[in-house]
Design a protein around this nucleic acid. Structure first.
Lengths: 330, 330
DNA sequence: TTGTATGCGTTATCAT
DNA sequence: ATGATAACGCATACAA
């Protein structure tokens, strides 16, 4: 008897149905099979509660219907949102998603890629920060928010347009002088284009502005913005009436700080953030913000990754952003 | 030549190294191998950039170092937090995590389990709501927040203690009459014990209270709490001085609503939530709250799932909660 | 200690 | 149309 208690295989099904394994395989894969055989096989499958072993399938076909997603984490609202929509987009196409959280650790990012290759996944989607990422050519890779190489498509929102939109909104809302606060990676990534777009918009609208940049890599703290802001307040009077923050997260911290300084939002100071993520999964935005089309980004990533009939993939895809009112503008 | 351009296999390594495949396999798996052979093999592996095919491995060993995590979504802060810590706990143990987001859809939950079985994963961790979940006996399963069957371990925070702790805090903070607002699933799950714990705590401390329960399944809206709250305000004067909300998310909505009614938090009304999730991944809590030990829960789930030497697994594990001040209490 | 051969479950290529 | 059989890449018992 031997392997009595192990899982049923295609052979067991064939035996019970009184047909050959080839026939069973055909039934499973929807190939043309005689009516009566069809029935016998299906009954046997049900009777044994047989499931195909996707590892054997993967070994044979070297197609695993599995995609690895590399992302810093899922507790941060924006990343959580991205991860979720990637999952939905993949599931919709019958793909499984293996997730690696890297906390922006360069080594972990590289390890994740190596592990993915080892697991013969059909592709990788990565939101990474490692500037020296080694990606072997034979595996489809789509990058989010960072151009890695010309042969690797990068998907992002239109960060430049987003920055410009923010500037235009401030102008429209009657602001005269706006601060741009940014803290992020020094890497040459897409979100850094928010600044250029913002400056462009300010120039277009004749809006006065000042920029303060802080760096992740340099270990700057968000609270380093505080003295900068204070230097713009003389005798309780700010010389600015708007603040554009590079992310909604940053906005929330800064909002708390300037409220401590006795300024009210949006009465005294109007604020616009970036990302447009809804905390708690609610529908309402927690601040006025430039909204990233996260779902569209996720869909685009998956489409690009899985379309093997596309000869030359676009090196950079920018998806449109929108402005959403969220209580920090008038 | 044939398969010239395909990935190198263990055979290619063996050929290049001038040894047998068995030897290569041993080197890969850290079995004892002669010093000189060791070197030759390792060089060949490097030269070919060889990676073991984990599908072939999985087929052979029927051990895949893969765990499926079933969770409603990752954009909601609490779920995102859970998913993240599960990922970290699994990665730490060299396991890969396949994620399925189900949005609490019962069919999707069942499908995810079936798919997991098909993929021969080593185990499943599920935060599910389907009351009729069919889980075949031969796959390790750990449930979060809901007891599914005596043979399936359930891991949760100590919800009863959490409810009681909230009541005790209210008493300590000088409250005389507290409202308990709960919206959730009617399923017999662990979080529903918060109510009993709260009532117990109120009784213990001689605290007056009233309870209002809303149901997910009945399609209730959180705004259905508004008339209930208003019925407790006579001529602008509330007959309560505290509100315990079954989740932080709910607290944030209710806080907005009662502020619209002209009540201030925490000056007029003190509020305590449940979950203790930090928005934006910050360190600060967004409200005073009963904090779930998410990391401990994740670790416990993984430990329980992967410990095969444990003969009888505990049917229910409750992990301790703590109170955190977050600006909605005095 | 090292090499050889068999099997894991599936699919695809043959004959039949 | 159906059945037998050879791969897929790896691990392991067994032989050398």
């Amino acid at each position: 008897m031997g392997k009595e208690n192990s899982k049923p295989t295609i052979v067991d099904v064939a035996n019970l149905a009184g047909v050959s394994v080839g026939t069973v395989s055909k039934v499973i894969n929807g190939k043309s099979v005689g009516e009566s055989y069809q029935k016998k096989v299906k009954n046997a499958i049900r009777a044994l509660n047989y499931k195909v072993n996707s590892y054997a399938q993967g070994l044979k076909a070297s197609k695993t219907y599995t995609v690895v997603v590399i992302i810093p984490n899922t507790y941060h609202s924006f990343f959580g949102d991205v991860a979720h929509h990637l999952n939905v987009a993949l599931t919709k196409r019958n793909y499984k998603m293996i997730m690696f959280c890297t906390e922006q650790n360069p080594d972990l990012e590289q390890d994740s890629i190596d592990l993915a290759l080892q697991n013969k996944v059909d592709g990788i989607i990565g939101l990474t920060y490692n500037p020296n990422l080694v990606i072997s050519e034979n595996v489809p890779f789509v990058s989010i928010d960072r151009a890695i190489s010309p042969s690797i498509p990068c998907v992002a929102c239109d960060n430049f347009a987003g920055g410009q939109l923010a500037a235009e909104k401030f102008a429209e809302l009657g602001c005269k002088r706006v601060l741009y606060l940014r803290k992020g990676s020094d890497l040459n990534n897409e979100p850094n284009k928010r600044k250029a777009g913002f400056e462009n918009g300010c120039a277009l609208k004749g809006l006065d502005y000042e920029v303060k940049m802080l760096s992740d890599e340099m270990g700057d703290s968000v609270y380093d913005f505080v003295p900068f802001i204070k230097s713009h307040i003389k005798k309780g009077k700010p010389d600015f009436d708007g603040i554009f923050c590079s992310t909604d997260s940053l906005l929330h911290i800064i909002k708390g700080e300037i409220e401590k300084m006795g300024l009210r939002v949006p009465e005294d100071i109007q604020m616009i953030g970036f990302d447009g993520v809804r905390e708690h999964g609610f529908l309402e935005y927690t601040c006025s913000t430039i909204v990233q089309p996260v779902e569209a980004i996720a869909e685009m990533c998956v489409d690009l990754l899985l379309s093997d009939n596309m000869k030359t993939k676009p090196p950079l895809v920018c998806l449109p952003v929108t402005f959403a009112e969220g209580g920090t503008t008038r």
